[in-house]
Amino acid sequence: MEQKYAVTVDDLTVAYNYKPVLWDIDLMIPESVLMCIVGPNGAGKSTLIKAILGIIKPIAGTVSIFGKPYEKQRSLVAYVPQKGSVDWDFPTTALDVVMMGTYGSLGWIKRPGQKEKKASLEALEKVGMLPFKNRQISQLSGGQQQRIFLARALVQNAAIYFMDEPFQGVDATTEKAIINILKELRKAGKTVIVVHHDLQTVPEYFDWVTFLNVKKIATGPVKDIFNDDNLTKTYGINYKVSVQE
């Protein structure tokens, strides 16, 4: 039987002001992997996620989620943007931010009710943030804000999770807590795609990797393709990683 792919990207090209940011990307992400996208600054990692989710319009190419266009599959996908992309002084509470994750399944106009609140509280508990549910979001630390974002994705109860640098500016404890939750998601058969920066932790955290630098360099299981050759091709300099045994 043919392997089922969670995400299929075909000839995707994205350009900002005539300058291509992503060039002819072909990518097949199998179901139930924990994958990271690595590449240097400006490689188009965030842009790739945004283009898959239709936030940025590509100038060429197609994307499908479980074989159908994203617009038809929104309910299967959760998205965690970069923490710095929102204003944390916005007048709202932690619980309210998590509730935003339920808006997608509600659709237009309908308001969240008790069911959505209960699901949000459970998601907050999962990331260990229940005691902070009524805290104003500007009063949370960077790591706590990231956990709130994770809880907001969890409450969507999706099949595929896209996360843009979830480890940015969090301490080691939070990083471990987040990766454990991501590993649990994969165990439950979900697909998790993470933009990641710290090459040292790739073999420990992820089982699938995509090297990206405007073009796709390589994609596959970490144990097969996470090597100096691909790193050099991606980062342009001789790279040596010490893969932990």
């Binding site: 936030i55 617009e71 929104r74 998205y79 943007p81 204003d87 709202t92 237009w108 308001r111």
Partner: peptide
């Protein structure tokens, strides 16, 4: 009253709003 939740999410986090289809 009709679009309070949509206004809130698109003001706070336009990226998420777009991904959710608002």
């Amino acid at each position: 009253f009709m679009f309070f939740k949509e206004l809130k999410v698109s003001t706070f986090d336009p990226g998420l709003a777009a991904a959710l289809g608002f």
